[in-house]
Structures are given as structure tokens and as C-alpha cells.
Write a protein that binds this DNA or RNA. Structure first.
Lengths: 180, 180
DNA sequence: GCTAACTCGTACAGCGGTGTTCGAGATAGT
DNA sequence: ACTATCTCGAACACCGCTGTACGAGTTAGC
């Protein structure tokens, strides 16, 4: 069910409960049995998306279970992070979008944290080692990179970029933006 | 009226006709007298926002009436473009957001064009003169810069960045991303 | 003073989404 | 075979937004 919700939210973040139910091949009432309100459904979809991205990052080895990146090459670690998480992020960004429309901003940020944390960590480490610019705020860098990921996901969803091209453009842009 | 609509859409892109009317200090029916449907209202707000941004760019001299940038220093022209248009863009981005939810993507892009065109032009000139990187697609660069502007506007609306800091972070980021 | 244009609040119908209820059918465990 | 659980479609009331209709009040111009 969450599968269908994620896929549907990617194409239409305002999808109704009935649409999700139909896409999942399930009755609307049945769906209400699992998620009492639409808000709960969106929340669950967001959590699922975040969790998938987190697992994708873990199995790729881009980050450890503790959220720490391999030491030594912050820029390389950042590139690995993007390469590994990109497809999961692209699939989940619709759910995030849907969540932003119903949930308070603070909560979506909080639930979003597990996937943002590795990014912030690797950027912070990069700054400490001098590989990442330190003339801009860390929070801004995180926001800027997130925005670029979001933009790449949209371009890809619109068919303007294919998977490989999107990955290449995104990593090249992020590295240029972040490099000291 | 459009004033109120723009201000309101900036804080809530899903604002209803009744909310806009109240914010404008006007009866809902009166508002319907000027804009037959909500869609028309959003369209008008978008056009107003785009037009303001265009005028802001013109009076600042960042672009001429024909949309052409002063020749010679593409990167400087880009920075001037951002500096001049930034506040107008920040005020109007809510209207764009609202428009994206009601109007077909093609139309909002089309109406958005007058303000995107100078950006595309200056980037294209920069590529021709070797000041702007040419290993990424022009469309992607435009999208990436737009995404950064959007991100800066959101950070500012959320109070995480003040006006000056936002301008500085934005221009520094864009230049780093775009430079050859 | 009269008209024309504009405004207003109230009230209405229509629509679509949400969340609930009901009765009935299918499935699996014992 | 019996029961508990899960499922289903259909129907319901509720709510908020949209767009329209009506009647009355205000303002400006002549």
C-alpha cells in the first residue's frame, strides 16, 4: 500500500485517499482501517520514504549505521552519498511534498532528519578538513543541496533528464557549490 | 487587491478566495466581480508578480528593455541580476507556488518566461565567452539557479536568513555553481 | 435629485473530499 | 464446521470551497 502511495504522491502530491486506494488495488474503507486519517497515511508514506533512503545509504556503505561517513575524503563521500541516495530520494520526494502540505513544517523537518543528518555531517567534516567552503552557513549549504536534489528530481520526473544525466548534473553542481 | 493576494500567497499558496478578500479588506463577492474565478485571480497574481520582477530588473539596469544584459562581464551581470531581482523574486515566489497548483505546468512556465529569459540569456552569453561552465545543460543550469533562488526565498520567509545574508549566500552559491 | 456604477452581507446550490456505518462476503486458524 | 479477522461496495452525514443570486447601501457625476 505504501508502495502505491509513494508512487502516486511522486506524480501528484495532492492525491486523495480514494486515488491511493485505487492505485493500491484496495478498497477505500480497508485503507482507512490501516490509517485512521489521511494525515496518518501521509505521515506513514513519509516515514517509509525516509527509511528507504536511509537503508539505501547504509547498504551502499556511503554512511555507517551510526550515520557517520567514511573519513579521509569528504568530497568523495558527498558524491557517494548523492550517487547512492539519489534514486531513493527521487522516489520519496513526492511524499515529502505531500507531507509539506498537511503536516506542520517542524514535524516534516523532524521526520526528514535521518536522511538530512548524513548530509550535514559530511559537510561539517568537509569544512573541518578545509575541503568545503566555510564562508557560508552550514544550514544554508544543507538547504541549497536539498534544493538541488529536489530540482533534479523534478527535472527527471518531467522527463527533461534521464537517470544518468540527472545524477551527473546533480553531483557536478553540488560539488561546485560546496567546494572550498 | 493583488497586493494582498501576493502577500498572502507568499505565506500560504493555498489561500482561498475568502481569505484573499479578507486580507484585501474587500467583500468576497466584490473580488469575484474583478476575477470571475479563483483561477483567474491566481493567474493575475502571477502576472503581477512577474511584471514587478521584470520592472525591478529594468530600473536597476541589470537588463535592458529588450532583455539583453550589458556585455563584457557575464558573471558580474549575473550577480547584478540576482541582487536586483532578489526581493521581487522573493515576494513573488508564493504566487508562482500557488499557480503551480492550479494551472498546467506549461502555462505557468510560459508566464514565468519574462523573468527567466534574462537569466537564460546571461548564462548563454557566459558560456559563449567561456566564463560559465559548458559541461552541463543550459536548461539544467537555469533550473538549478531557480531552485537556489527558491530555497533562499524559503529560508528568508522562515526567518533563518535575513535579507543581506540571503543575498550574499545566494549570489556566492550561484556563482560557484555556474563558474567555468 | 437622479442615475449609474460600485460596493456590501447574506444566502443559496453544487461539488468533492473526509471519515463513518452497515451488511455481506472471503479467508485462515482450530 | 465454526469462528475471528480481514476484506469489500454502497451509502451516509459533515465540512469547506466555489460560484451565483438577491436586495440594499454607498459614492460620484450631471
Amino acid at each position: 500500500m505504501l508502495d502505491a502511495a509513494l508512487a502516486l504522491f511522486t506524480t501528484d502530491p495532492t492525491a486523495t485517499v480514494a486515488q491511493v486506494a485505487q492505485a493500491a488495488g484496495v478498497g477505500r474503507v480497508t485503507l482507512y482501517g490501516h490509517f485512521p486519517t489521511r494525515e496518518d497515511l501521509v505521515r506513514a508514506a513519509l516515514d517509509e520514504a525516509v527509511d528507504r533512503a536511509r537503508r539505501a545509504l547504509e547498504v551502499s556503505g556511503a554512511v555507517g549505521p551510526d550515520g557517520a561517513a567514511p573519513a579521509g575524503d569528504p568530497l568523495g563521500a558527498l558524491a557517494a552519498l548523492l550517487r547512492a541516495g539519489w534514486s531513493a530520494l527521487a522516489e520519496g520526494h513526492g511524499a515529502v511534498d505531500a507531507a509539506c502540505r498537511v503536516l506542520p513544517a517542524g514535524e516534516v523537518d523532524a521526520r526528514h532528519e535521518p536522511v538530512v543528518a548524513p548530509l550535514r555531517t559530511v559537510l561539517a567534516e568537509g569544512r573541518a578538513s578545509g575541503a568545503v567552503r566555510d564562508d557560508l552557513g552550514l544550514d544554508w549549504l544543507v538547504a541549497a543541496v536539498s534544493a538541488l536534489v529536489h530540482a533534479a528530481a523534478e527535472q527527471r520526473a518531467a522527463g527533461l533528464l534521464d537517470q544518468g544525466e540527472a545524477t551527473r548534473s546533480l553531483t557536478a553542481s553540488v560539488l561546485a557549490l560546496v567546494r572550498a
